[in-house]
Amino acid sequence: MTNLAIILILLISIITDLRNRKVLNIVTLPAILIALIYHTVITGFEGFAFSSLGFLVGLGLLFIPFILGGIGAGDVKLLAAVGAWKGTMFVLYTGVFAGVIGGIIALLILLKRKQLGSTLKNMVFSFVFLKGNKGSLQLPADTHNPVSIPYAVPIALGALAAYLVGGNL
């Protein structure tokens, strides 16, 4: 049941994120609530604790990037939903894999656009002089399209990788 729920949630979120650049509340919020209810009914307080801790860890993993403006709220809620369904260890694995996969995607996009050098230079400058742009990458002024990734894709691929390596299934 939990695997089927996660597959449906992630597939719907990938489609909406790729099409509209949004992970919908109508998907994530009921997913979180149903996961909490499901685990509570199945195993009582232990299930509630399992689901709640997974939710909180999923929420916490992307909360700081969200506050810094580097990721959308829908992505945060999507990872929290994964945690609510699959628990703490699974969502930790998912978050780590999603971060690596998202970084690789961003690197490939920057390489394709020939913006890797200028982006790295701006990141080093921002770090050395503690000058930031609310957490986002500062690209050259002549850049017409900012680098943006539909992060439901790395989250789904991260969940798949966590499943394949046995992240507390």
Rank of each mutant, 00 (worst) to 15 (best):
T2P: 04
T2V: 15
N3K: 08
L4A: 13
I6H: 08
I6A: 15
L8S: 15
I9Q: 11
L10T: 11
I15M: 09
T16A: 08
L18W: 07
L18D: 00
N20W: 14
R21V: 03
R21G: 05
K22W: 08
V23L: 09
N25F: 02
I26P: 02
T28C: 13
P30W: 07
L33I: 15
L33Q: 03
L33W: 10
I34R: 08
I37D: 01
H39Y: 05
V41Q: 11
G44F: 11
G44M: 11
F45G: 09
G47E: 02
G47M: 07
F48K: 03
F48N: 06
S52N: 03
G54A: 06
G54T: 09
G54W: 10
V57T: 13
G58M: 11
L59R: 12
G60I: 10
I67K: 11
I67N: 00
G69V: 12
I71T: 10
I71E: 02
G72H: 07
G74S: 10
V76Y: 06
L79V: 04
L79E: 05
A81F: 10
A81W: 09
A81R: 12
V82Y: 03
V82P: 03
A84I: 03
A84F: 05
W85F: 15
G87H: 12
M89C: 00
F90C: 04
V91N: 06
L92N: 05
Y93L: 04
F97K: 01
F97I: 02
A98C: 06
A98G: 05
G99H: 01
V100E: 03
V100D: 01
G102W: 04
G103I: 09
I105W: 05
A106D: 00
L108A: 13
L108Q: 03
L108Y: 10
I109E: 11
L110E: 04
L111T: 06
K114G: 07
K114F: 01
Q115T: 08
Q115S: 05
L116E: 01
S118M: 13
S118A: 13
T119E: 00
T119Q: 01
T119H: 01
L120Q: 00
M123S: 14
V124Q: 04
V124F: 14
S126F: 03
S126C: 08
F127I: 14
F127E: 00
V128Y: 12
V128T: 14
L130D: 10
L130M: 13
L130G: 05
G132D: 07
G132E: 04
N133A: 12
N133I: 04
S136K: 15
A141K: 15
T143N: 12
H144M: 13
H144V: 15
S148A: 15
I149F: 02
A152G: 12
I155R: 04
G158K: 02
L160D: 01
A162R: 08
A162Y: 09
Y163P: 00
G166Q: 07
G167Q: 07
N168H: 13
